[in-house]
Simulated scan of single mutants.
Amino acid sequence: MIKVASDLKGIATKYNAADRFIEENVRNGRGEKVAILSGDEQVTYQELLNRVNQFGNALKELGVQNENRMLMVMHDTAENIVSFFGAVKIGALPIPTNTMLQPQDYEYLLNHSRSKVLVVHEDLWSKIKANRDRFVFLQHVIVVTENTSVDANEIDFHELIHNKSTQLESFMSVKDDPAFWLYSSGSTGNPKGVIHHQRSMEAAYNTYGKKVLGINENDITFSASKLFFAYGLGNGMYFPLGAGGTT
């Protein structure tokens, strides 16, 4: 367990954002509270923590290490949040990306980031899988699918985490370590990978989510901006989770 304070000035030397935004809520007695509403699915904070830990353990079994990059091409679902924080918890770097790009754009992002892992929803993967041989550094493709089977060189998301341990120690990062990347839109050239630190979500939550929006544990947030945008990542994920609310 990593102990952290509730505002940026008091962040402990050892800090992991997955511990802060997920596990801290369970420690504070919110385990049975609904963290995510997604279609007909309701995910409690305890269930979310369990899945985050299972995904993190699965990544470790695949050989993913701290600061390895993991590109995400995903719709706004519970699996998105699980993947993001599962990577953060082991010190790997998730990279949420726009779901409306062209195949050549994903080729650039995968190769530029040197991503070792791609987590992708099946309908989005179907549009880019023909280019897999051109993804130079990619080793593992984890596909979120409901009813269809994956190819032999792909990994089913739900099968991957099934029966994995729900216990996982947070990687002992510090507040200034990298936590995730986001790519710019590329309006002035090729998209640029922007590194966000472990403290970045804490800072945005405290200065805007908490002090300006006034989000608290009784709130349910809905974001028109998708999770792959910086705005959406806050509005639809770490603002409500930071307050112990529901997204």
Rank of each mutant, 00 (worst) to 15 (best):
Q65R: 13
N66T: 04
E67N: 15
N68H: 15
L71K: 10
L71Y: 06
H75T: 07
H75Y: 10
H75I: 02
T77A: 05
A78N: 09
E79K: 08
N80F: 15
N80V: 07
V82W: 13
S83G: 13
S83F: 10
F84Y: 15
F85W: 13
G86V: 11
G86W: 10
G86P: 11
A87Q: 03
A87R: 04
V88F: 01
K89S: 07
K89Q: 11
A92F: 10
P94M: 09
P94T: 02
I95W: 07
P96Y: 11
T97N: 11
T99N: 09
M100T: 12
M100G: 05
L101Q: 12
Q102P: 00
Q102S: 06
P103R: 08
P103S: 09
P103I: 05
Q104P: 00
D105I: 01
D105P: 06
D105L: 01
Y106Q: 07
E107K: 14
L109A: 02
N111F: 03
N111H: 06
S113E: 02
S113N: 08
S115R: 10
K116H: 10
V120S: 00
E122F: 05
E122M: 06
E122H: 11
D123P: 04
D123I: 07
W125E: 01
S126M: 02
S126N: 14
I128H: 11
K129A: 12
K129G: 04
A130M: 13
N131F: 03
R132D: 06
R132S: 12
D133R: 11
D133T: 13
D133S: 15
F135G: 08
V136A: 15
V136E: 15
F137L: 10
F137P: 09
L138Y: 09
L138P: 12
Q139S: 12
V143R: 11
V144W: 01
V144Y: 00
T145G: 05
T145S: 13
E146R: 06
N147R: 08
N147Y: 05
N147W: 04
N147M: 04
S149Q: 13
V150Q: 02
V150E: 03
V150P: 01
N153A: 08
N153F: 02
N153T: 07
E154L: 07
I155A: 07
I155F: 06
I155Y: 08
D156T: 09
F157E: 02
L160S: 07
I161G: 03
I161T: 06
N163D: 15
K164S: 01
K164H: 07
S165K: 11
T166F: 03
Q167T: 14
L168W: 00
L168T: 00
M172C: 04
S173P: 05
S173M: 04
D176M: 04
D176R: 04
P178E: 09
P178F: 03
P178H: 12
A179W: 06
F180G: 04
L182Y: 13
S184Y: 12
S184N: 14
S185W: 15
S185L: 14
G186C: 15
G186H: 15
G186I: 14
T188H: 02
G189T: 02
G189C: 03
N190T: 01
N190I: 00
N190E: 14
P191A: 05
P191C: 06
K192E: 00
G193L: 05
G193T: 10
H196G: 02
H196K: 14
Q198I: 09
S200P: 00
